[in-house]
Amino acid sequence: MFFENINWSYVLILPLIGGALGGALVLVWWERRLLGFFQDRLGPNRVGWFGILQSLADAIKLITKDDWVPPFGDRVLFILAPIIVAGAMLMAYAVLPLGPGLIIADSNIAILWILAMSSLAVYGVLLAGLASNNKYSLLGGLRSVAQMVTYEVFMGLSLLGVVMLTGSFSLRDVVHAQEDMWFCIPQCVGLVIFLIAGLAESHRLPFDLPEAEHELTAGFHTEYSGMKFALIMAAEYLSLILISALIVVLFFGGWLGPKFLPSELLSGIVWYGLKVVLVINFFILLRAAIPRPRYDQLMSLGWKILLPLSLLNILITGAILLGTQ
């Protein structure tokens, strides 16, 4: 029978993709609204209840827009680039655990897979910049490559502490290893470094140099409009959700509730969602509060401070592990 051979975790794929894209859509509205509150404004509040349908209206607008491809650019790459960005981001979701048994691919190299996929997304950004054949796009693409290469290095290194404490690259094992204590306490340095690297990786606002709108108009997606632009934006919000979920899984115990509360209080997936929403809100707060650093400041922060710090973190974690064993 067909149904006997089916792997039931594949059933999760459609809800996950739908949930992630829907989450990205809601996030567009929620970010604008929360930014408004931070700045003593109201934010979009006209369409639907509290403006929640605003992103739907935006989506309709984007779909009905002219699907323009610059005649001076590279047509194939131009169309391919947003697909690579969004596709790579969605691929990374495959190994993301949502609950005790809720995982599409329970891989034993899940962390490496996510790092690899978020690196692949850089190709999309670079190709978008190249294919546009526009100086702003090119500069944005170049910046994004330099930024990603820099921050990729210690993004991986900052996770090694967690991996060492767990003894596995599997995200399920990472969560199970946090039953006694969340890794945000022993790995607080790793958490801060991963947070900053994740910001840079998803080029969120304090580190949005690839698209710095004050200098590069819109950076690598200057020439994009309509649904291709929407795809790039969706990928950006997908990566924000991904990074937030990763932070929750790696450092805040995933679906585990706090130890001092009875475990039956809320189900795992609710705890998980609550934590992810909190981290996302923190990212939005960062966007509202922190100004964008200069390009050389970004580079020197990466190479001179965060990279040595993450190496030191690995060294000390390893030493303590050796000493206690």
Partner: peptide
């Protein structure tokens, strides 16, 4: 100063909005 900025902005979440829904 970065942390102070974060806190200041966060406090503004609970301030009255300047916007008047004209």
């Amino acid at each position: 100063s970065q942390i102070k900025t974060l806190w200041t902005v966060f406090v503004h979440l609970f301030k009255r909005n300047e916007t008047v829904q004209y």
